[in-house]
């Protein structure tokens, strides 16, 4: 028990110095993950906000043109566009997250490659491969947790900014009715006047949980690959490699 705590103390001391002196590397990896996580949150908030706004527009259209034959078609068309926009947003966010995990993985591997002699030296000191693995995983986990949390904060901020600058859609139902006349001459329903639909970007807890999970999973993947590379290194490189 006390030995375990000892192991952890030394591992955390190593981690602390490592992060302090190679902070730019940690920052780049963490920031990459943060951007990916933030995009997932902001883009899905924007998508559900768009969907909500469109639904309200459709509601007022339905209300205005309930007896209009064209209304059904318009309804379908707008709903399809709305669905497409939402899906596109999710795909963009997913692609951004995958890209940021790929960047984090590459940066972790580059960092491990730069530290070949360091890991070789640790092996020469008698460190078992699993201890080196644990060290690299600890470092990536710390960066991953920090990056993911920063990403959640960024995502909320992004959604708040979108909601603040988002347009208020004004739907002039009379105008719509004029523009799409029914087959039987002039519209039967008189206009209800303009309907204001304010854009909002609501964040669902499920999406936040998903983004956090994916961010941490990505960090774990990056760390596992890096640790695997580090542990596989030939210890003799400590003696023969220079640089």
């Amino acid at each position: 028990m006390s030995r375990l705590r000892q192991d952890r103390t030394l591992r955390l001391t190593y981690l602390r110095h490592e992060l302090r002196h190679r902070w730019w590397q940690a920052l780049a990896t963490g920031a990459g993950l943060a951007v990916g996580v933030a995009l997932v949150i902001t883009v899905s908030a924007a998508a559900s906000g768009t969907r909500a706004a469109q639904n309200r527009v459709l509601d007022s259209l339905d209300h205005a043109a309930s007896s209009n034959a064209a209304a059904g078609t318009v309804d379908d068309a707008v709903a399809t566009a709305s669905g497409l926009a939402a899906h596109l947003g999710i795909w963009v966010a997913a692609a951004a997250l995958i890209a940021s995990v790929a960047v984090a993985t590459l940066l972790t591997l580059a960092s491990v490659a730069r530290r070949v002699r360091e890991f070789g030296t640790l092996k020469a000191l008698g460190w078992p491969a699993r201890r080196i693995t644990a060290q690299v995983l600890t470092e990536t986990a710390a960066i991953g947790v920090a990056g993911t949390l920063a990403g959640v904060a960024l995502g909320y901020a992004g959604a708040a900014i979108l909601a603040a600058i988002g347009p208020t859609l004004t739907v002039n139902v009379t105008g719509f009715a004029d523009a799409v006349p029914g087959p039987g001459g002039p519209p039967k329903t008189p206009g209800h006047g303009p309907v204001a639909v304010h854009f909002s970007a609501p964040i669902s807890p499920g999406i936040v949980a998903l983004a956090v999970g994916l961010g941490l999973l990505g960090a774990l993947l990056a760390g596992a690959l890096g640790a695997w590379r580090a542990a596989r290194l030939d210890p003799a490189t400590a003696l023969s490699r220079v640089g």
Partner: peptide, 8 residues
């Protein structure tokens, strides 16, 4: 100290 890490 790292040299002592593997020792109990």
């Amino acid at each position: 100290e790292l040299a002592l890490a593997p020792l109990r």
